[in-house]
Amino acid sequence: MESITLTADLDALAKISAFITAAAERCGLDERATWQVQLAVDEAVTNVIQHAYDPDQPGDLTLSWQCHDHRFIVTVRDHGRQFDPSTVPVPDITSPLEERQVGGLGIYLITRLMDEVHFEFSPQGGNLLTMVKYLPHDQPAEANEVVVIAINDRIDALTAPRVSKLVNERISNGARQVVLDLSNVSFLSSSGLRALLLIRKELMTLGGELRLAALQPQVYEVFTITGFTQVFNIHPSVSEARAAFSQRR
């Protein structure tokens, strides 16, 4: 999950729009769905700016997102006055101009643009709005498969960028369940370890998972010394790493 916390004023709108657009693209939403999420989030944040706090004393708002199980989940939290969506009348979009109410369009748009919308309030947590957009069904080919990538070199400061590039290309093609076959890696430096940590974090953000397989003893030792055996999923062989994915599902 990634978050951004800002003062709830009008300056926040452009920043939040850029933040959520980049996030939606990373999660694999297409251009239209990204635009819909952008508009829904903008409406939600506008609502907080205009109604949650006194204009001369704006508080904070926190926007978070995650990709999980083919869903893009966005939350907007504020600690302003309680918002009760049932008090906002649903606009009659068929009424003629003379009778047409001017307000209430923001919440209405959010419910039309997103697949799920939930409001919660608690005295400690404040207002929490959760909005979910389903990812399109035609997922990239690799999204549902276990993708095995063999690394055939030392992973050190010099080669780590190449390894990262190789793996990130597969991730942008949709790979989410990734096994790195390290059987041909004879050496792993701290830069290499950092590159693997970043790959792991990126996959987790996107709702995927990284597994490492077939480590040579001296490479495995790097993990035990640094305590990273607790952080990474490490398997004796590629087939066992694969099996671990299928057990989970």
Binding site: Q38, L39, D42, E43, T46, L97, L105, G106
Partner: peptide
């Protein structure tokens, strides 16, 4: 891009 505050301006102006 237009969100609800902009729509509101349009409808009030047309009225």
């Amino acid at each position: 891009y237009i969100s609800s505050p902009g729509l509101r301006v349009l409808i009030e102006a047309r009225k």
